[in-house]
Nucleic acid binder design. Structure first.
Lengths: 190, 190
DNA sequence: ATACGATTTTGATAAATATCAAAGGATTTG
DNA sequence: CAAATCCTTTGATATTTATCAAAATCGTAT
């Protein structure tokens, strides 16, 4: 039993042989800081569970990097556009800290789904949960100001500014680095 | 066989008995225009497939209605926050046209999942597909201007302006009605 | 057709955010 | 430790979008 299986079990309790089957198609490794796990244009066929560390998922818009997602301890990251479609991804995945990662090879999951319907359910619940997260984020963008988004972020991820550069966070919030810097400055005087 | 089962079959081919089981927990009805299918604060336990018509999913932000989603022919609509969590929803669902709707009673799905693992897969793929849709929408908001969002919308949903009021569309695009009106005006001179 | 209510557009102004440039601070490296 | 590089902040200005108010348009019921 490892952190990844632990995590999966917390969503749906898996029988031992299903755990084994998943372990067999999972790669466990320590990845140094600033490693590119996926470059855009490539096909993504794994998803990553972070036992420790920090990664970002980002894409390019008009030549600039835009952070789509951060994942840290206990979080997952992948290029879902490609993972789910089999087409090349627009996303890049990069470690921002040295990270201990469990990478599940999605392409090898099919027989596991077939042998263990419970894993199909696990997959459904995981996507569902992440849908809700994205829905939250969506609402935040659709009708909240940059400042409200900032507040929410530091609440959910208090140490993010200590762990990565401002520019990465700014694009995650959908604003420029300068604007984020000013929001933070205004915040200190409260 | 009906439109709803047809739709499900297009995602995953279902054996006949699974189709039956789903049909048994699905309500088929014609709903008049402007009907509220769900009010915020209620628990949502069904999701709706639109054979014809148009609905919007919306919530309140600072007293104002914000459209989160439109669904028309062949689309689905529900208050996913509640459907997936069992908690009261923040969303409202309203028909904008008289609509022919298949409403699947989500709470009765559990035994169907158990009897037919293929339905579990169907569920996973449906959530997955909708995750990708939401991801698209998210990217559109995170780093595209209102005008780019407008362009994308008329491309995907050319007749939306004929079918509902401007205000509903504006909040879907994350802008005010006035601003949307001006974008449209600027567009005509092209 | 006319009048009413609802919806959309237009106008003036204000607020939020971006852009570009430069100045400060950190951090790394020789 | 100093130089070089990278990152963050600050300043000035421009653009985008919101707000509030009024005018124009549309749809519908008389």
């Amino acid at each position: 039993m490892n952190e990844f299986i632990n995590y999966l079990n917390s969503i749906v309790e898996l029988p031992h042989n299903a755990q084994e089957a998943i372990n067999k198609i999972t790669i466990h490794r320590e990845v140094p800081k600033n490693t590119i796990l996926l470059s855009h244009g490539e096909i993504c066929n794994e998803f990553h569970f972070l036992a420790t560390g920090l990664v970002r998922v980002f894409y390019y818009k008009d030549g600039k990097e835009v952070t789509a997602w951060f994942a840290s301890q206990g979080g997952i990251a992948s290029a879902i556009d490609s993972l789910f479609s089999g087409l090349p991804s627009i996303y890049n995945i990069q470690t921002l800290e040295s990270s201990e990662i469990f990478s599940l090879q999605y392409g090898k999951l099919e027989p596991v789904f077939r042998d263990f319907p419970i894993v199909e359910r696990l997959g459904r619940l995981m996507v569902t949960y992440n849908y809700l997260l994205l829905d939250e984020r969506m609402k935040l963008f659709a009708f909240c100001t940059a400042e409200e988004r900032y507040e929410r972020l530091i609440q959910q991820f208090p140490d993010i500014f200590q762990r990565t550069k401002l520019g990465h966070v700014a694009s995650y919030l959908g604003i420029t680095q300068e604007h984020l810097s000013r929001i933070r400055a205004a915040y200190k005087n409260k």
